[in-house]
Design a protein around this nucleic acid. Structure first.
Lengths: 239, 239
DNA sequence: TGGGTTTATCTGGTCTAACCAGATAGCGCG
DNA sequence: CGCGCTATCTGGTTAGACCAGATAAACCCA
């Protein structure tokens, strides 16, 4: 029973969100949370202080804990994803847009700066992807790995960490996306093209290829969100 | 004595960093920290859990608290800045590069999406800047405000929050930069040009102007870091 | 019945005092 | 000198208590 379980935070978030939805943004009290999860109040307070630092909740002295309605940070998004809390369409749109901005530039920089090590890591991922496709399985994790490896090749650690959060937050959605086999195949062939551009150190081409590669994904999400909006104009207020 | 003072975290970080520097990455024990800051161990643990969630420290059960040597996150950078802990040259380089990537794209999107409200906010800032310059004072905060307002005009909240962290982390360095009056004047005139491009909704021009505007800053930092490196090849290991 | 006031309860904020068990270092023995 | 034992330290975790402001329920008066 060492330390607090690493997935206690997501569980806590899920619980708080569920409760807050039904009680006007108000979360259960610290004492209630402690009892519910069978831990001490101290443990709960530690976790809550993290959530507060992420701007997910607000603690009003002597009043209660309130779920903030406008979560937009990178880390908090990833946490919500792990907690299984759906994001607002607006948040997905913003995240997809940001991801595109980042990765297009990453492709350019990667073409210029990638080391042999970066190249071989990318090649490995592509090989695994090919094998996966041959077995009739979707890409999913390998897709994310490929994209992140490109960001790593920019040699900018901060860049890499930021993009990691994007993928952490989008994991579930990507899993859904890659359920259709033809998407995996298309993605893979585009990855191969991008890889060639990186090897050739053609920054312009790499950038352009990444642009169209991600453009497909972006329009996919845009259309999906439009459909959802049309089908259900009442958007649930999701932190 | 409500809650924990909002600047307790920076103070704690500064203390931990100072101690860890001298003791091989090892921070004082929780009990020592509690005594030093005259608070209970619970308070210390709450703060430490936040630092751990930011990847600034590592808590090894029954062993101690260790300062992580490779802090690269956005929030942690901002916290270090508030704590007065200098960043590694590499981190500054990375942050400056990322900031440039973000803001160039922001200028483009802002040209396309800025509302009348965004325009008038920008105009206000420029007016204040002109007044400040007329009084012979440097820009500094108004420079950051202008840049952030452009990001806000992209209508992408997540984008805005991310860039806020950049400025929080860079505040001190910007203060130094703008000590030279001619830099404020140059910056202001470039801001005016960018503003005109935004009003004209010329995304291409806005992007290009922002590129050269930030290019100046980037080369400034690059040169400065090169000088430092030449003068002191021994780079202090700064979280 | 309506409105204002009193009161009892709840809540976060904070502290103290423990216990546990593994990590760690110091000591002593061989 | 090196090995092993032991006392100490450390984070992890809990229980219980007190404070004072926020909150809402109960109450009372007009």
């Amino acid at each position: 029973m060492n330390k607090i379980d690493t997935d206690f935070l997501p569980t806590l978030v899920a619980h708080i969100v569920a409760h807050a939805r039904a009680h006007g943004d108000k979360a259960p009290s610290e004492r209630e949370l402690a009892e519910h999860f069978a831990v001490s109040r101290g443990q709960v307070r530690e976790s809550l202080s993290i959530l507060e630092s992420m701007q997910i909740i607000e603690r009003r002295a002597k009043s209660g804990i309130y779920l903030k309605p406008d979560v937009a940070g990178l880390d908090s998004m990833a946490l919500f994803a792990r907690a299984g809390v759906p994001l607002l369409p607006r948040q997905i749109f913003e995240a997809v847009e940001l991801r595109k901005i980042h990765e297009i530039k990453a492709a350019e920089l990667a073409a210029l700066r990638a080391t042999d090590d970066n190249h071989s890591r990318l090649r490995d991922i592509l090989d695994q992807s090919a094998a996966q496709l041959a077995k009739g399985e979707g890409l999913f994790r390998l897709d994310g790995a490929f994209h992140l490896e490109i960001v790593r090749a920019t040699q900018n650690e901060m860049f890499f960490k930021m993009c990691q959060s994007f993928y952490a937050a989008a994991e579930q959605r990507h899993a859904v996306y890659f359920r259709k086999p033809e998407r995996s195949a298309k993605s893979h062939s585009e990855h191969l093209q991008i890889f060639d551009a990186l090897i050739a150190r053609d920054a312009i081409l790499a950038q352009a290829l990444m642009n169209s590669h991600l453009g497909g994904a972006q329009s996919y999400w845009t259309e999906l969100l439009d459909e959802q909006k049309a089908a259900n104009p009442l958007i649930p207020p999701v932190g």
